[in-house]
Design a protein around this nucleic acid. Structure first.
Length: 593
RNA sequence: GGGGUCGUAGUUCAGUUGGUUAGAACGCCGGCCUGUCACGCCGGAGGUCGCGAGUUCGAGUCUCGUCGGCCCCGCCA
């Protein structure tokens, strides 16, 4: 079947498919869009015209037999022009489920602008289609109302960001996409230079150095909505290219940055009819790790971690006692109303802990006058009872315990806490808990490489109170770095930067970078620092993650028009792909394997 | 790099202990139908059981390998 396709000619759209109401009754209109569904009743044919604004019912009747005939030949996803008159529907025929349900368009002329193959999946919201198929046919997936709503929300958010920063005196300034590789941090995407054979540009992991240079240049307040690239493995919230709302402020302090960012989040939350009450809670990194086992705690759930070492320090329970003796601790948290867990569920939890890299968990609960615990035999009733008391576990609650060095044990329990929160459905999708995590450690110790590495990036300033320990005790120095966290998701991170070139050199030295090395990698930047650098700081927000949370999506793929799979493949475009041998020759590149 | 999970009609899925011709719903095609809106009714077509080996008289089902989607660990300044 290959129906005749007609030209658009002089027809022009008078209304979208989402706007006609009873007030338009009697108007002569032209709708342009896709056939959503056809209901052929014989001499009477209904179909819905769909565009991104909505759906409008069109009727083909015997008062315009030509139009009725044309309507009978329509199939889903055909592109049509409909000319006709708006009629108010009879009371029984009103469809309250759609905005245009009060009316219908009685077709006088139906033009088929294009036909369509039967789509591999239906274009409506209810259908649940494998993501693989959706990604392969992304152009069809993007016709679905949900994805269109997500992209509309994203547009509105980006627009609100631009308007807000303009109001606050920021300038949007573009920075290079072809730039210099800095091997620290994430793996770079490299772009070969044809003009300089054997040399490469790198795609930016973020515009970090450029925005700092803009501060040195006196641009005062910069922002940009910008693509960033990191060649690392993917996750539900990580794509190889992603979008940051990047900003930098001269003469900034933490409180200035926060006071600018908090109202911005308020504007974004307003897009979904919510707010972001300022000021956000602030939590030191050390507290986040101790209480939640995470540097991005989800504050929608309680179940705080507690140190429960006391009863185990001198107990018979060798594993726990030894962990404490070695400078570690016993940590645990209470799962409310989980005393009912079956043996099978408790085993599952233990398996999960092992999969997360832990040795396992010990569980404990009250039972009538006595207690039950997987550690009962080893620790004895009194110790378990004491631990339950210390943890504040009630009769219906379950206590989960692990032992070892502080941070790894806390992180293990933190991961378990989140997984149990999911299992128990405790993560309320209608709650939004913002916080700032502050006072990150300046450095982390790389065991394998026997050296310190910066935790944030090498331009982050130390807390003034800690700076005198930079050389004597670098592990204890806290950084003026901060993360914005929303519902357990890191949605932004930034810092107050080093503006003193002497301090910057010292930091490079501490990181084991010689003057020559530093010069090679960041020479231009260190040079620039010497020409009157104002104190400055900033932050970058993960736009994809923010939109995903606002849209209620579990994956940022749902708010990116053309995302990649977990293997970094664009299933629609077929990227990456082999390239022409001539292209490679021109670049003096030999492809491996 | 590692772990988990999934892969059967266009789509979403079922498929028993390894046993006849692999099913359902939706979609698609044809017919009927003047108030439908997930229209309804009647009929029909549609399968490389992801791919490749192996075990077996016999494999959608068991084994090994491999490819792909998703989730997690590592990684992600």
């Amino acid at each position: 079947m290959s129906p005749d396709v007609e030209p658009l000619g002089q027809l022009r759209r008078t209304h979208t498919a989402g706007e006609l109401t009873a007030a338009d009754t009697g108007k002569d209109v032209v709708l342009l869009g896709w056939v959503h569904r056809v209901r052929d009743l014989g001499a009477l044919v209904f179909f819905d015209v769909r565009d991104r604004h909505g759906v409008t019912q069109v009727v083909g009747r015997d008062d315009h037999p030509g139009a009725a005939d044309a309507a009978k030949r329509l199939r889903p996803e055909f592109v049509v022009a409909v000319q006709g008159r708006v009629e108010k529907r009879s009371k029984e025929a009103v469809n309250p489920k759609i905005r245009t349900g009060e009316i219908e368009v009685v077709a006088r002329d139906i033009r088929l602008l294009n036909d369509a193959k039967t789509p591999p999946f239906p274009i409506n919201e209810e259908s649940n289609v494998s993501e693989e198929t959706r990604l392969r046919y992304r152009y069809l997936d993007l016709r679905r109302p949900k994805l269109q709503q997500n992209l509309i929300l994203r547009h509105k958010a980006a627009f609100a960001v631009r308007r807000y920063f303009d109001e606050q005196g920021f300038l949007e300034i573009e920075t290079p996409i072809l730039t210099k590789s800095t091997p620290e941090g994430a793996r770079d995407y490299l772009v070969p230079s044809r003009v300089h054979p054997g040399e490469f540009y790198a795609l930016p992991q973020s515009p970090q150095i450029f925005k700092q240079i803009l501060m040195i240049s006196g641009l005062d307040r910069y922002f940009q909505i910008v693509k960033c690239f990191r060649d690392e493995d993917l996750r539900a919230d990580r794509q190889p290219e992603f979008t940051q709302v990047d900003l930098e402020i001269s003469f900034a302090t933490e409180s200035l940055v926060f006071s600018i960012l908090e109202p911005l989040m308020g504007r974004l939350m307003a897009l979904i009819g919510r707010d972001a009450p300022a000021p956000f809670r602030r939590m030191p990194y050390a507290e986040a790790i101790a209480k939640y086992g995470s540097d991005k705690p989800d504050l929608r759930v309680g179940m705080e971690l507690k140190d429960l070492s006391e009863p185990f320090g001198s107990s018979e329970f060798a594993v726990f006692r030894n962990a404490i003796a070695k400078g570690g601790e016993v940590r645990g948290f209470v799962v409310p109303n989980a005393a009912r867990y079956s043996r099978k569920e408790l085993d599952q939890i233990n398996d999960e802990v092992k999969q997360l890299g832990g040795a396992g968990v010990v569980w404990a609960r009250r039972a009538e006058a006595t207690v039950q615990s997987s550690g009962l035999k080893a620790a004895g009733e009194e110790v378990i009872r004491r631990a339950l008391e210390l943890a504040g576990a009630g009769p219906a609650d379950l206590l989960l315990l692990a032992a070892g060095p502080h941070a790894p044990t806390a992180r293990l329990l933190g991961a378990l806490r989140l997984s149990i929160a999911k299992r128990e459905n405790l993560l309320d999708p209608n709650r939004y808990e913002f916080l700032w995590v502050v006072d990150f450690p300046m450095f982390e110790w790389l065991e394998e490489q026997n050296r310190w590495e910066f935790m944030h990036h090498p331009f982050t300033a130390p807390l003034e109170s800690d700076a005198n320990r930079l050389e004597s005790d670098p592990g204890s120095v806290r950084a003026r770095a901060y993360d914005m966290v929303l519902n357990g998701s890191e949605i932004g991170g930034g810092s107050i930067r080093i503006h003193d070139q002497r301090l910057q050199r010292l930091i490079f030295k501490l990181l084991g970078m010689s003057d020559e090395e530093a010069k090679l990698r960041f020479g231009f930047f260190v040079d620039a620092l010497e020409y009157g650098t104002p104190p400055h700081g900033g932050i970058a927000l993960g736009l994809d993650r923010i939109i995903a949370i606002l849209a209620g999506e579990q994956s940022i793929r749902e708010v990116i028009a053309f995302p990649k799979t977990a293997q970094a493949v664009d299933l629609m475009a077929g990227a990456p792909s082999l390239v022409d041998a001539r292209q490679l020759r021109e670049l003096r590149i030999k492809a491996g394997e």
